[in-house]
Nucleic acid binder design. Structure first.
Length: 280
DNA sequence: AAGGAGATCAACCGCAGCAGT
DNA sequence: CACTGCTGCGGTTGATCTCCT
């Protein structure tokens, strides 16, 4: 292995976008000699780049196991779920997504997913909610929706949400639904949508608490009844479990999406509606 | 067609942690 | 124990692209 220990000549290090030639040099060098010391490798490979720049280029772009292209629905949900528990630990999140880099996950979060949970864009979001509802009310209010709305109002009045706590917009816009939703979360951030489409609420809550949101009281007195409950379960007013524990994502993975409860409201339709509302 | 605004993403920067001396 | 250098991480920047007027 050709190891240059030091270099007295101070060639200015190149910055900015990598050329195909530079990529080729770096890939060829790593294929042949493997990674041993980024700053020394850079010189040995004939690149006027810092070791740091080489490492970044390799790790984020040139590595053969990098998965390029759009994020799948599964990946999106994984990022959202993990971000709720891990926060901005992008490398930890990326570690759960084979082929994705921390940089990519971070960029994707900031450009696509962050706005899903953005609270202060409530009016915009709710405008979209109304739009979705209007567009779908006549044509798309399927039999399943009628079945859903035909549930006794009181049985729907309290919903203990998921870790994501993004409540089905179609469910929540059902006219028979009362105005409060109980959200519980094991994650620090939760978001809920009022059935009247008037409020979108996001709040930082305790890991083990759940809260009752009354959408008729606007945003004041958001949290009215903290208590300790199990996380991620759906309950009706009588505290009867009406959905499985865990995240919708896990429900889908485990084929336990509560289709009885949602009456044919498919998991992917649910995600689609969320996408529409939050503008992904 | 042009240009302005916003979105996207590759790359840089600064810092912290760790290992070697 | 202090110093130094390397690596990895998260925040930020800026070039480029896309969309809208």
């Amino acid at each position: 292995m050709m190891k240059k220990t030091s270099s007295s000549e101070k060639t200015p290090l190149k910055k900015g976008a990598w050329s195909p030639e530079e990529d080729r040099k770096l890939v060829a060098y790593i294929k042949r000699y493997k990674i041993w010391n980024w700053s020394e490798m850079s010189k040995a490979a004939g690149l006027a780049r810092s070791g740091k720049s080489c490492r970044l280029r390799w790790v984020n772009y040139l590595r053969p196991d990098i998965k390029h292209g759009n994020f799948s629905e599964q990946e999106k949900e994984t990022i959202i779920t993990l971000h709720e528990t891990l926060g901005n630990r992008w490398s930890a999140i990326a570690a759960k997504l084979p082929g994705r880099t921390d940089n990519e996950v971070k960029n994707y979060w900031h450009t696509h997913l962050k706005k899903r949970l953005k609270v202060d864009s409530a009016s915009t979001v709710l405008g979209e909610l109304h739009k979705v509802d209007d567009e779908t009310s006549a044509k798309n209010l399927s039999e399943s929706d009628h079945l859903l709305s035909s549930k006794p109002a009181e049985s729907m009045s309290i919903l203990k949400g998921t870790d994501n706590a993004v409540v089905s917009p179609r469910l929540m816009s059902s006219t028979d639904n009362p105005s409060s939703v109980l959200i519980t979360s094991s994650a620090p951030t939760s978001c809920g949508i009022g059935k009247d489409g008037k409020n979108v609420i996001e709040s930082i809550i305790d890991n083990t608490s759940s809260e009752t949101l009354n959408f008729d009281q606007e945003l004041q007195s958001l949290w009215t009844k903290p208590d300790i409950v199990g996380n991620g379960d759906f309950f009706d007013l009588d505290n009867q479990l009406i959905g499985p524990s865990g995240n919708p994502q896990e429900w889908q993975q485990d084929s336990i999406w509560p289709s009885d409860f949602y009456k044919g409201y498919d998991y992917y339709d649910w995600i689609d509606d969320i996408d529409k509302i939050f503008g992904t």
